[in-house]
């Protein structure tokens, strides 16, 4: 059923997957990567291997001394009702056709059109997401069909995950599930090559200079 044509072509760089697996990556980046992983069996297998590296190191580490009463303390807690479990309490998609994987769906639901879009600039709408910080912009962008993002540079890493439609820059064409990655060395002006809008999740460290 899943032919060659559906395989993703643009993946995050390995160092981002390493930082995701080790837990160094910030929350915003982790939401994007976890969402990509749900859409990409290849990177999922990669992260499973990285997690196994973390597990293997656990068996090699010098054990620390444990306080005498800790086991008893733990045993006294295990009969209590477990805290609400994030894995079971999450959202389920409202329709069969939902395409937003859970790591992102828990924050935005699965109906992209019903979100509170505001105009960022003509032809581009934006929804700010709650996991952004002072230093990291986290937002959904909707670029109208045939529209483009003004040429811009980057002051830090930028991760963009396509959720719907298509986006094109010098490095190629990005479709749903694909990740476009850019850093200080990249100047680009991505555009939407078809008539459908492109919706993407963007995690931008240090912000963009769209007018620079």
């Amino acid at each position: 059923m899943q032919g060659e044509s559906t395989a993703l072509r643009h993946h995050p760089q390995e160092n981002v997957l390493v930082e995701y697996s080790t837990g160094t990556l910030h929350q915003a980046g982790s939401v994007l990567i976890a969402t990509h992983l749900a859409m990409c069996p290849t990177c999922r297998a990669e992260v499973e291997t990285l997690d196994a590296v973390g597990g293997a190191l656990l068996s090699k580490i010098e054990p620390a001394e444990i306080a005498d009463g800790l086991l008893d303390r733990v045993l006294s807690h295990i009969d209590e009702t477990p805290e609400t479990d994030a894995t079971s309490a999450g959202t389920t998609p409202s329709t069969q056709a939902s395409v937003i994987p859970r790591p992102l769906r828990d924050f935005i639901g699965d109906d992209l059109s019903s979100l509170n879009w505001v105009e960022d600039r003509p032809g581009i709408d934006r929804v700010d997401l709650p996991f952004g910080t002072d230093c990291i912009q986290a937002a959904l962008f909707r670029v109208r069909g045939g529209g483009s993002v003004p040429e811009h540079t980057h002051s830090g890493n930028e991760l963009v995950l396509i959720l719907a439609g298509e986006l094109t820059d010098d490095d190629g064409s990005y479709r749903p599930g694909d990740v476009a990655q850019a850093d200080e060395s990249v100047t680009h002006a991505p555009f939407v090559p078809c008539s459908d809008s492109c919706i993407c999740l963007a995690i931008i460290e240090g912000g963009l200079d769209l007018d620079g």
Partner: peptide, 20 residues
């Protein structure tokens, strides 16, 4: 003080591993 986003193996939106 934040929750790490995790994959949900039972998520209907998860693209399954092919042939594994």
């Amino acid at each position: 003080r934040e929750v790490r986003p995790e994959l949900d193996p039972n998520d209907p939106a998860l693209v399954p591993n092919a042939g594994r």
